[in-house]
Design a protein around this nucleic acid. Structure first.
Length: 930
RNA sequence: GCGCAUGUGGCGUAAUUGGUAGCCGCGCCAGACUUAGGAUCUGGUGCCGAGAGGCGUGGGGGUUCGAGUCCCUCCAUGCGCACCA
């Protein structure tokens, strides 16, 4: 009987659904294994062939682990809040809830066709109130917590309040501060604390809360009308949509992720993630060690004042080379210190700088700009007067927003000094300084007072010691990582569970959750520029207090979803203690590398926070992470001759002035354009004429990201229709190593399809059963089986699925050659194949007479004794060159092999002198060195 | 500029991790069979060469009896970060 994939796949997909085959066990005593995919955002375009790549790989692992006796948690859900649904809503008035619902239904249909073993009873959607209730709950925990640097963990804010009540706050007790706290706190005593108003207390506490409201510089995207996090800005443009982004100061909810910078960095060592992801995170966190130094400002007669500028430097050793100090244009001291003569020029410079978008600033990187303020500071060691400048190259958000400029040993300072004719003072021997700064961290100190004669490596700690001794600064670690902006001026997101009572932000009580997203009449911002939620009518806490109108960012819901799957239907807790105890953390996490500095950092942050408060037992979300490569699309192009409706074939296009145009890959099979379909493809192409080459129109090809706008999307449904889901699954795995990006191509898919047909034929299906022999298999047959079992097992352990598919093909070829029809060989083979091609395996398993799903089978054990070769053909090489081959027993010892090689007739033909040395690798090779 | 990957036949790739480079699949060539197919089967297929043989894993150098694999160096491509003091 033929292999009818359509019937088989429909039949078993229905059967699995009816029988709840993939429901995760609860009371089982089996060991557990948690396999997680990054859940998709359900976009309107549907799944393309790139999406399932990772899902197939993780499904193989999940099914394999089940066969190996594990209780496997393998859930799926939808990251359902997000911009595209909202943009669509703004354009059409369609509620994003409805579009999202439709898209999810479509995704689900597509996923079901591929035969995944997801436990859909645990499905979660981030936009579901029963889910975001707990996202809001976690926000409340963040608001009610601070980071205690003494214990290096988050603690309830009540504990800090008690400390204030008992001891007040002294600046020396810096221990209370954490992260990049922006405002300088004034010290207060416990009595002063008690005397503060509620509002004053609230303001102080906001400096400590892990979710806090502050005036902050944000990435503002006018086109989207919202604030974006740093990882959502790419090249000065929004990640979604590519709109320009500018800097803006706003009242803004943020999460104090910087408090966790150290742990996020150090704990990378204890997780099994790829080097590239870890490096990207290290880079993003950007730890650098150095020290702060205070420079006192002087008055008009040159006497020191109480005002000072604090700088951060990683090169305190070069402090004697300081020839000016530069402030960021946004620095708070700029107004205060600028001399009247320079006021206009400085105001002008600050205005130009602040009006620039992020993108313009980046484009101007090479251009030096700056302005003198007229102010001077005292050099803390030499007492010399040092001019104070402002310059765009100094960033307000990093360090202290001020730098000490050492032109001789820092390239940016060098360019600045050269441009404005400021002195360049060498303090380290070496380098010429004629062309560029000498920035090596080695060499002997000169012109540097107490540091003279030291090497740079000694000078750095020595300088910090002296700076601390003089009380003008402290050794400090700085991070590039910023706190995460958490409010979005959008509708389609989780409402932030905060209301304002006399200007004081208050969080809702747990019992009041979820704070459900209210309906609004329109989805754009209000006329006064308020977020869309400001349109909600009668939406007030206790009928009187205004709610926060920004919503949470897209990454909020995905920062803890892995926990919710453990206990997805719990109404009383975000996850129960029993479920946590059972599953603990993700054993295998699979997803795209593009989330390296976004989702993958946020989810680690939230996990650590929940761990600190004792809600969970692990402080990392996933033990093992694998990034699947992207499947790119191969776009097809036609070339329109400028100003005409004539199109020229790719090979001839250089003879004309042309404009390339994306054309849908479906009307250009094998990159040969279907002229008739092209003409009807779009209205404006009816009149198209063509210049052909070799009788056809050849399209240009380019590998690009698969996307609707590039007309290069390949839908998995089409492949399934033609070849079946099992072929799709095997083919996607066969395409190449999982982690490698590759362009989609169906070249060779029929090789995989033919393999499945050959596999099917092996089982001799007739009239509803397999006509197999019950005889004992031969040694050769057993060897093929056990070799395959071993290979499949080894490959899955190193996520090498493409080689496994090859191993299956070899196995079938060899069994075919032997005309093997032994049940004892063919039955275990079905189990082996079932993770890869579950439908055909399930069908055969039942045809072999089993009533239960193949999922309930156990993975066969390979046995060494079937694999051992008694004889081995040894290539014998002389000086590395293979000369002859000898059949020798593998049982022989190294010495015996050597002896037999030398005694063989063959050696005489090649050896004219006694060998110097013989190298034997048993089972491999013999090499004779002469 | 810094960091991380990756370079192997016409193509996708493999190589037991230092041991006969090119498994498996696509494509191609030749043949068989046939109710002419997107079918099945057999043989062949890295390059040069009629052949013996020679050359071959981005280039160059090194270590080793032996290198796709290890070391140095250069080149190319992809990704990430980037005025971070």
């Amino acid at each position: 009987m033929e292999y009818h994939f359509k019937e088989i796949e429909a039949k078993w997909q229905a059967w699995w659904r009816q029988n709840g085959t993939y429901r995760t066990g609860t009371g089982s005593t089996k060991p557990t294994y948690y396999v997680l995919d990054m859940f998709p955002y359900p976009s309107g375009a549907g799944l393309h062939v790139g999406h399932p790549l990772g899902y197939i790989a993780s499904d193989i692992i999940a099914r394999y682990k089940r066969l190996k006796g594990f209780d496997v948690l393998h859930p799926m859900g939808f990251d359902a809040f997000g911009l595209p649904a909202e943009q669509y809503a703004i354009q059409t008035g369609q509620h994003p809830k409805i579009t999202t619902e439709q898209n999810i239904r479509r995704y689900r249909e597509q996923l079901d066709k591929i035969g995944f073993s997801f436990d859909w009873e645990r499905e979660i959607r981030t936009c579901d109130p029963s889910y975001y209730k707990w996202t809001q709950w976690i926000f409340i925990q963040l608001f009610n917590s601070w980071y205690n640097p003494v214990n290096a963990k988050a603690e309830p804010i009540d504990r800090l309040i008690r400390l204030f009540e008992e001891k007040g706050y002294q600046p020396q007790g810096e221990a209370f501060l954490s992260g990049n706290i922006e405002s300088e706190l004034q010290p207060f005593t416990s009595a002063e604390w008690m005397a503060m108003s509620e509002k004053e207390k609230s303001d102080v506490l906001l400096n400590y809360r892990l979710a806090y409201l502050s005036d902050a510089w944000v990435n503002w995207c006018p086109a989207l009308g919202t604030v974006l996090a740093n990882d959502e800005v790419v090249d000065g443009k929004s990640e979604r949509g590519g709109y320009p982004v500018e800097r803006k100061r706003m009242k803004q909810w943020s999460l104090r992720m910087t408090a966790y910078a150290d742990r996020l960095l150090n704990d990378l060592e204890k997780i099994d993630w790829s080097d590239s992801i870890k490096d990207a995170q290290r880079n993003w966190i950007g730890r650098s060690e150095g020290s702060t130094i205070c420079f006192h400002l002087v008055d008009s007669s040159g006497n020191p004042t109480s005002d000072s500028i604090e700088v951060f430097t990683t090169r305190p050793d070069t402090v004697f080379g300081v020839s000016f100090v530069t402030l960021a244009p946004e620095h708070e001291l700029v107004d205060r210190i600028t001399l009247p003569v320079y006021r206009d020029a400085v105001a002008e410079y600050v205005k130009i700088a602040s009006n620039k978008t992020e993108r313009e600033r980046q484009a101007d990187v090479k251009k030096v700009s700056g302005q003198f303020t007229g102010a001077y500071v005292l050099h803390p060691f030499t007492g010399e007067l040092v001019p104070v400048w402002i310059g765009e190259y100094v960033l307000a958000g990093y360090g202290t927003g001020a730098v000490m400029a050492v032109p001789a040993h820092d390239q940016r300072d060098y360019l600045f000094a050269s441009h404005f004719g400021l002195p360049i003072k060498q303090v380290i021997e070496g380098g010429t300084l004629e062309e560029e700064a000498y920035t090596d961290k080695s060499g002997r100190m000169m012109n540097s007072g107490f540091l003279n004669g030291m090497d740079v490596r000694e000078a750095i700690p020595a300088a910090i010691r002296e700076i601390e001794l003089k009380g003008i600064g402290v050794g400090r670690v700085n991070f590039r990582l910023r706190d995460a902006a958490f409010g979005r001026q959008r509708y389609w997101g989780e409402p932030i569970p905060v209301y304002y009572k006399e200007g004081i932000p208050c969080v809702l009580d747990e019992s009041e959750l979820p704070l459900v997203l209210p309906d609004v009449d329109k989805f754009q911002p209000t006329e006064s520029g308020e977020p869309p939620l400001a349109r909600a009518v009668n939406w007030k806490h206790e009928g009187m207090y205004e709610y926060e109108t920004t919503t949470m960012p897209g990454w909020a819901g995905s920062s803890w979803y892995f926990l919710r799957y453990m206990d997805a239907r719990n109404d009383n807790a975000f996850v129960s203690a029993e479920a946590l105890d059972r599953w603990k953390q993700v054993d295998f996490y699979l997803g795209g590398a593009e989330h390296a500095t976004g989702h993958l950092l946020y989810v680690r942050f939230w996990t650590k926070f929940l761990f600190d408060l004792g809600f969970i037992q692990v402080d990392e979300p996933a033990r093992k992470l694998v990034n699947q490569g992207m499947i790119q699309g191969v776009s097809a192009f036609v070339y329109r001759i400028n100003g005409t409706s004539r199109f020229v074939s790719a090979g001839l296009r250089h003879e004309y002035e042309t404009t390339p145009l994306h054309v849908d890959v479906s009307i250009a099979p094998n990159h040969i354009l279907d002229l008739e379909r092209f003409k009807t493809w779009r209205e404006d192409l009816h009149q198209a004429e063509f210049i052909l080459e070799e009788g056809v129109y050849k399209c240009g090809a380019e590998v690009e990201k698969m996307s609707k706008s590039k007309y290069n999307v390949v839908n998995p449904d089409d492949i399934i229709d033609e070849f079946g889901a099992d072929t799709l699954r095997l083919y996607e795995m066969f395409l190449g190593p999982l982690e490698q990006s590759k362009p989609w191509s169906t070249q060779g898919i029929n090789g995989v399809f033919n393999f499945l047909r050959r596999f099917w034929r092996l089982y001799r299906v007739e009239n509803g059963s397999c006509r197999l022999s019950e005889d004992q298999p031969s040694a050769a047959e057993l060897k093929i089986l056990h070799k395959t079992i071993k290979k499949v097992e080894e490959d899955v352990d190193r996520y090498s699925f493409n080689t496994t598919v090859s191993a299956f093909m070899i196995c079938v070829n060899e069994l075919n050659e032997l005309k093997c029809d032994k049940r004892a060989v063919l039955e275990p083979l079905v189990i082996l194949l079932s993770p890869y091609a579950p439908h055909i395996a399930e069908e055969l398993w039942h045809l072999l007479g089993h009533g239960e799903s193949v999922t309930c089978a156990s993975f066969p054990q390979w046995r060494e004794e079937y694999l051992v070769e008694q004889e081995f053909e040894y290539p014998v090489s002389i000086n590395g060159k293979v000369r002859f081959k000898l059949n020798l027993s593998l049982q022989l010892s190294k010495e015996e092999i050597e002896k037999q090689v030398l005694d063989s007739n063959e050696t005489g033909r090649y050896l004219t002198q006694p060998p110097k040395k013989i190298v034997v690798v048993p089972g491999r090779i013999v090499n004779i060195v002469v």
